[in-house]
């Protein structure tokens, strides 16, 4: 009788041990994962994650999605958009390849941000298949973003490096506090565009990495160990970083959209057709304009 029971139980235990062997979280690692919760020597990311996720993240996102558009609405009503003639000469600034890559990145962000927000505010949507669908779409859009981020980073890298113009640009806030049209210090890209570039590319890569960690959840422990973290603390760190950077990316994305769609009338056409209005370049990217002039390109 004993033998029969053993022959039934042994395979069960072996089967669970086999699973345990390839799982970082529920297998042999479970002790170090759990201990890291409150141990003095560990990073104790558990309580920090609980505190921020339960009380702060959704409130911070609420403030960002309400305050940023409100500020821009006020800007539009009080100061108003910059308008440049669309009848003059045009300057070719973005190649077809750049425009296509930018389009892929744009669509990716247009999915990533709303679906991310849907997860964050999931309880008001009742959870279930709607929010689950948002989570799946968030993953699909990540693939689109991965395709676009590397070429975009490479083809704009040189023009996105900081210059002296950028300091001057920041001091006058790009001239957006007045409607007056005068020469603004900026190369092909101004300091604001450069900030967005770095947040979206380097920040984007961090978003891909932290998102992938959460997506995979149970993967080669050497990665977490190389950061001196248990697997669960690594996931907690990923969730924390993903949320904090998401606040920044969301705020910058809204700004980017407002600038191209509203603050400078018709600026969006340049990324569709490749041509920017002569006057827009002349005033808003004055250093770039002078350079083109010197090179005899206009």
């Amino acid at each position: 009788m004993k033998k029969i029971i053993f022959s039934i139980i042994t395979p069960l235990i072996l089967a669970s041990a086999a699973y345990a062997a390839d799982s970082q979280i529920w297998g042999e690692m479970i002790l170090s994962n759990i201990k890291a919760y409150g141990e003095v020597s560990s990073f104790s990311l558990g309580p920090l994650f609980v505190l921020l996720q339960s009380a702060y993240f959704s409130k911070i996102f609420l403030v960002v999605v309400l305050a940023v558009p409100t500020v821009f609405l006020l800007h539009y009503l009080i100061i108003g958009p910059k308008v440049f003639s669309h009848d003059g000469d045009k300057i070719y600034v973005f190649s077809l390849f750049q425009r296509i890559i930018h389009l892929i990145a744009a669509v990716a962000f247009l999915i990533l941000i709303p679906t991310g927000l849907m997860i964050i505010f999931g309880k008001y949507l009742g959870g279930g298949s709607l929010v689950l669908g948002a989570r799946y779409l968030h993953g699909v859009a990540t693939l689109m973003f991965i395709v676009s981020v590397i070429p975009m980073f490479l083809f704009w890298l040189i023009e996105m490096l900081p210059t002296l113009d950028d300091i001057k640009w920041v001091f006058i806030l790009g001239g957006y506090l007045s409607k007056e049209i005068k020469e603004i210090p900026a190369g092909k890209f101004n300091a604001g565009q450069k900030m967005w570039f770095w947040v979206a590319s380097l920040g984007g890569v961090v978003m891909i990495a932290t998102g992938a960690a959460m997506y995979l959840q149970d993967f080669n422990y050497n990665i977490a160990a190389s950061f001196g973290l248990s697997q669960i603390d690594f996931l907690r760190a990923s969730a924390l970083i993903h949320n904090v950077l998401a606040v920044l990316i969301t705020a910058f994305f809204f700004t980017h959209a407002y600038m191209s769609l509203f603050a400078i009338k018709g600026a969006i056409h340049s990324i569709i057709t490749g041509y920017k209005e002569n006057d827009e370049v002349k005033y808003l990217h004055s250093s770039f304009y002078k350079k083109l002039k010197k090179q005899g390109q206009i």
Binding site: I25, W26, I30, N33, I34, Y37, G38, G46, F49, V50, Q53, I119, G122, G126, G127, G128, V131, L132, A134, R135, Y136, G139, M214, Q217, I232, L235, R236, A239
Partner: peptide, 26 residues
């Protein structure tokens, strides 16, 4: 039926109790 399988509860749990079967889409 409400759960979206995001994993946050696992990050919060002091005992590593929540588990995730790999039966979602993809």
């Amino acid at each position: 039926e409400k759960c979206i399988g995001c994993g946050y509860c696992l990050y919060a749990c002091p005992f590593g109790a929540p588990q995730f079967p790999r039966d979602g889409a993809f």
